[in-house]
Design a binder for these strands. Structure first.
Lengths: 204, 204, 204, 204
DNA sequence: TATGAATGAGGCTTCATTCAT
DNA sequence: TATGAATGAAGCCTCATTCAT
């Protein structure tokens, strides 16, 4: 990467991280492109050289932040040699993600509203890792499924159910302790998740 | 109700139904208060006599539409004398709601994005039925729970899990057939719901 | 005055005193007719039965409050038999007014901006006392002038100069202590006033 | 100054002079920012690039117009070598200003309502001359005071008294001939001013 | 590639005034 | 006489986007 390319990347990254900060502190609607450009230290016109509009930069942020999160969880899982079943792996990842988001509620707030199946699949499937450290999570999941002792009936549906359940419940549990604080909700939630997996498992 | 009150109610209802139409056709963000007033056939200032702002009218719409929907489902359930267990009752209501929303995707689109636990509880609990035909759904649910042969461990959490799961999954299934058309998703979904209920049931 | 007239007077007085309170606390521009009516406990339409618009009620307030103030000062002067010369009388009245306004800065703020010669003359000359206790100050002044041992050359101009000087200086001195606190400014101010009077005095 | 800066200055000046015209013909309250922008031939948003709001542009106009006026008067004084005493200098400047405002009643109307001590000091003291031709009048005054044969006791108070007296009296005299046409009022007024100066003068 | 001045549509909200009751 | 619902003009201000430099 030459010096010019380097500078361009810096500008883009600066815009991305500034936008994230503003979106999470002031909210998406109340953040203007002007704000982003000014805080990123670039001209307003420059924004348009890198992103089509506010929605464009938001979507790119969601994809990037989600992937970062899943990558972190997955890398952590790789170190746990003692976790062998698909069920335990999935619970481990969920638990990791929940703890992470509990620590970083600002990120939760940003991602959660957008972590629906549609965007999720778009984000994690179509997402082109831009870095060696980023992972195509969807294929990782399929590999995990295939490696298991059990055969999963319709793994996509199973993932869908789990993601929607977890994604929508943790939001209010972590941010508002409703209907229970996340710590107390976990047992109920994991019990449901394990049930979902069992229902989809058939002997190979 | 005298003539004046009558007229006021008409104005308010006209604003509510116009707002619903515009929110569902053009989207919330792209609907302006000006649009609502103009289409409702009243002056712009009149809007502010009845609602504080766009968010206010939206919240009132959510509460009203949700209640209407649940009331309809509940009334239908009352006619099914053969459905006796809590589990069957809940499944019946969910099934009724799904079919209803499948027929009325515009309503689904409007409600789904807002049917989170927080708003749901606010909408259905604090909601003051404005009409003899409207129902306080939350107390109906608690009555159903108490009447059952089983005791439910933490009925609020159970309801929370079910609502979040159903609320977030049907959206993409009905509107985008993703990951499956709603018809095919139902068995999986109901299976999970029944499991959730069983997990929370203890002998009395 | 019959009961109906009584009630009308009460309404009008309520509107006047409410308007005064709002003008002085929130400012004239930021006070709406709606505010006045609501706080006075009458309907919005009722306002228009008594006053033409916001300017109308303001002018009536200025006239009323000014007269009240001058009347108070004049009545106080009447008790001071030892004050005999015109010069001393004028200084006494000014001193009384300043002390009064210093105690009641809200009133000062309201009156001062309007106590220009034009409005003053209109207010105090055309002002029809509405009450036995109110005084036509301009004729009182002319009587005082005629009673003095000296003849005053152009008493109207003299009054004009004094009023403009005092009216415009005390505002910033009392409210902002600029360029001096009113207590320290008084000697300078009274010295100028006495000079003005002397310049206009001729032997009879 | 490059072409861009040149254009910006033109825009700003256009807005300033348009605002002045509208304020003086239609009044401050009845002039909207829309009006100013439209008449200046710029977009509404452009206004906000240069001024915070209507009050901001008004204050800048007062400062600018006042300074312009005083500068003109002062430059004229500099040519009168025969005027040597402070008293004569001040009277000369006042006379010059009065004649000028008598010729330009629109300007009088605009400035007079705002030429209170507070704004005057702010305008003439804090005012940063934007042009070689503009003068910091307050320091000019202090120099004049120090150069005089007499020592002035509290020159700030003296200036305050003179400005308030002159500022408030000429308004009604010039615009309404009340209580006398300005020509006839002058002798009385200058007599008072000279008295004020004498009162403040002490032997060095 | 980078800038930021300029734009003007469009949003929100307030309010004086009217008028049917 | 009294009310207050209704109106819509009018004001303020923001902002995405363009374009000349």
């Amino acid at each position: 990467m030459n010096k010019l390319e380097q500078k361009k990347k810096e500008k883009k990254d600066s815009l991305l991280s500034t936008a994230f900060n503003l979106f999470t502190t002031s909210g998406f609607n109340k953040t203007s492109i002007s704000d982003i450009a000014k805080n990123a230290g670039v001209g307003k016109g420059t924004f348009y050289l890198y992103f089509r509009d506010k929605y464009d930069i938001r979507n790119k942020l969601i994809a990037h932040k989600s992937d970062e999160l899943f990558t972190k969880a997955y890398l952590s899982l790789l170190n746990k040699k003692e976790i062998t079943t698909l069920e335990d792996k999935i619970i481990y990842i969920i638990d990791y993600l929940i703890d992470e988001l509990n620590e970083n509620q600002v990120l939760l707030n940003f991602i959660s509203k957008n972590l629906s199946w549609g965007i999720f699949k778009a984000a994690l499937t179509n997402y082109t890792p831009q870095d060696a450290s980023e992972i195509d999570f969807y294929s990782v999941y399929m590999t995990m499924v295939n490696d298991d002792a059990y055969k999963i009936d319709n793994p996509e549906v199973m993932l869908f159910l789990i993601i929607e359940l977890v994604g929508s419940t943790i939001y209010s549990a972590i941010l508002y302790n409703e209907p229970l604080p996340i710590k107390e909700l976990k047992p109920y939630l994991y019990s449901v998740v394990r049930n979902i997996i069992k229902e989809h498992s058939v002997e190979k």
